[in-house]
Structure formats: C-alpha cells, structure tokens
C-alpha cells in the first residue's frame, strides 16, 4: 500500500505533545480561505517553482520528457499544462528552485523516516499525521497509525473532521491525541469560508469526545471571519458540552503567500487580515468564559 506524501517536518514542537515528526499527507476536502498548506490541497503531485532561486543551469530542460521547462529570451519558463508530475526535474535541480510535492511512499518508507528521530520522542512525542487531510487517504492513514502503534510510537492525528464517522471509529483506537479543527460554528458560514458545511465535523467531534479520545481543538483565528463574539461563544458553548483537554487558538498568518506563488496559485485569502496579540488574547478570554483550557499558539 502506498500514500501520497507532501512533506515531512522534523522537530515539530507545536503539533501535539513533545518532539514529533509530522507527516503531511496530500489531499483535502476543504478549501479554507486561509489555508497555509496549498501544496497539500490536491492529491496529485505538484511542482513548486521558486523563481529567485533559479540559476538558469538548464538541467530541468534536459530532465523533462514532456518539454514543460523551456528557456527563452526571458530565461526559464514552466508550462504547467505539460507537466505530468513525474518530479524528474526537481531531482536534478541543484539550486533547489524546483520542489516536488507528492511523493508516493509505502508505509515502511514513511515509518523509516519517522523512526530516524525516535531518540527524540521521549515519553510523549512521536508521529503526527497532518495534511491536507490525513483521513482523505483513509487506508494509508490507518496503516501508518497501526505501524506506529506496533513500533511503540505515540501518534497524533491533525484533522479537519470532515470524514465518515465509521472511519473515525476505526482510527480512534490507534490515535493517542486528535488535533481537531473547529473553524466556525455556523454551518453556512463554514461553507462560505471552507467550501464545506460543518455538520459532519461537529457530529464527529461529539462522537470522538464520547469515546474518551484525547482531543486538542485548534481554532485558526481570522479577523472578520470567526473572531466575533457570537461565533466564539457558539464554539465555546459547543465545546463546553464535551470539553477537549485543550483549545489552541492559532493566529492566521500569510507565510504561505510564497508557496502560492511558487505553485502559480492565487492566495484565496488575499484580503484577509492578521490578528494582533490583543485580538488573540481577547478571543482566548472569550472562550475561557466557557470553562475551556485555552492557549494561544
């Protein structure tokens, strides 16, 4: 069995407890305006091109069987319509101007990477599956979690919650901690911001909480989208019914703009603004009124 991997992040210290290796799986059902991992949205492989790093060596032209890379008067150009995502060009790009997202890997291959840093995991660190949305590669995700369990590696699953409930029932026994996103409490608004309603997401949360699963809820805070009092109170009241061990408020940032540009994509949230420290503190206080353990990430 294989899965499509976007990337790995070692020494991940904010993706669950302890020191972890985060495995990013490719593909996500949501289209959040603020998404900071655009390279993870679609399942098929993608090529990122960082213009400023290109040294015009021409190695990609020779490596590409489809003629996607060309050199003309304006230097290097990339015709994405010709690219079939084989990744050969990125492999020969010594300047690291081309980066390939979407490596097909087996469970053993992924686990080999995860186990390299085993000495750092201690008692509570381990592997985090993130994305994209790991449940979008359901079988592979389950197989990875099982393999980690067999190896004695602590597991965390970073999920948007938008997957069939039976899948969560199958995953839950293999997950030490869910990192569960709640982006909005109103389903219509959720649909407008992420492309999907939130009914299933909230239902799955209730289900997981009912199983006694360890859950850290993550709320990306985006001014004008979900930082109003009514929304925060709605989320707070919902969570109060089955409190997670912690709520982490994550400030929206625009660090991903470079990644959108490298993928020739327009950032969907270009008009969004960033919360400042005061806004974060205010939102955290609002949620705490509902008896929640809230931290600002």
């Amino acid at each position: 069995m294989t899965g499509i991997i976007t990337d790995f992040k070692r020494f991940a210290v904010h993706d669950g407890d302890g020191i972890r290796t985060t495995v990013f799986l490719k593909g996500c059902p949501l289209r959040c305006l603020w998404c900071h991992n655009p390279e993870s949205l679609i399942r098929r492989p993608q090529l990122a091109y960082l213009t400023e790093k290109c040294i015009d060596c021409g190695a990609c032209v020779a490596a590409c069987p489809k003629g996607a890379h060309q050199f003309g008067e304006n230097g290097h150009t990339l015709d994405r319509t010709r690219c079939d995502g084989c990744g050969d060009c990125a492999a020969v790009c010594t300047a690291k101007a081309l980066k390939f997202y979407g490596r097909e890997m087996t469970v053993d291959e992924v686990m080999a990477v995860v186990l390299e840093d085993r000495i750092f995991y201690g008692t509570n660190g381990g592997m985090t599956l993130s994305g994209g949305e790991p449940t979008a590669q359901a079988e592979f995700t389950l197989a990875l979690l099982e393999a980690a369990g067999k190896a004695g590696i602590n597991t965390a699953l970073d999920t948007c919650g938008d997957a069939p409930q039976p899948l969560f029932a199958a995953l839950a026994p293999h997950v030490d901690c869910f990192l569960y996103d709640i982006k909005h409490i109103d389903s219509d608004r959720h649909r407008a911001l992420t492309g999907r309603p939130n009914d299933r997401i909230l239902e799955n949360y209730r289900f997981l909480a009912g199983t006694g699963a360890q859950i850290e809820v993550r709320i990306p805070l985006i001014p004008g989208c979900n930082d109003d009092t009514a929304t925060l109170d709605g989320i707070g009241a919902f969570l109060n019914a089955a409190p997670p061990r912690r709520v982490k408020l994550l400030p929206y940032h625009s660090y991903a703009d470079g990644k959108y540009a490298a993928l020739d994509l327009a950032p969907p949230g270009a008009a969004l603004t960033f919360p400042d420290a005061a806004q974060m503190a205010l939102a955290a206080d609002r949620l705490r009124r509902h008896g929640l353990n809230v931290v600002v990430g």
């Binding site: 020494f11 904010h14 020191i19 750092f120 201690g122 931290v295």
Partner: peptide, 22 residues
C-alpha cells in the same frame, strides 16, 4: 518559534534529555 511557549520549553528539554540518553 521552536522555543516559544510551554511546548517550546518542553521541546528544548526533550532535546537535552535525548542527547544525554544517546
């Protein structure tokens, strides 16, 4: 950013412990 907050402090401690143990 890797060292901020409680998680960052725990991670730094984790590095120290791991380096010593290994």
């Amino acid at each position: 950013t890797a060292a901020k907050g409680d998680e960052g402090l725990a991670a730094l401690l984790g590095l120290l412990r791991a380096y010593d143990a290994a």
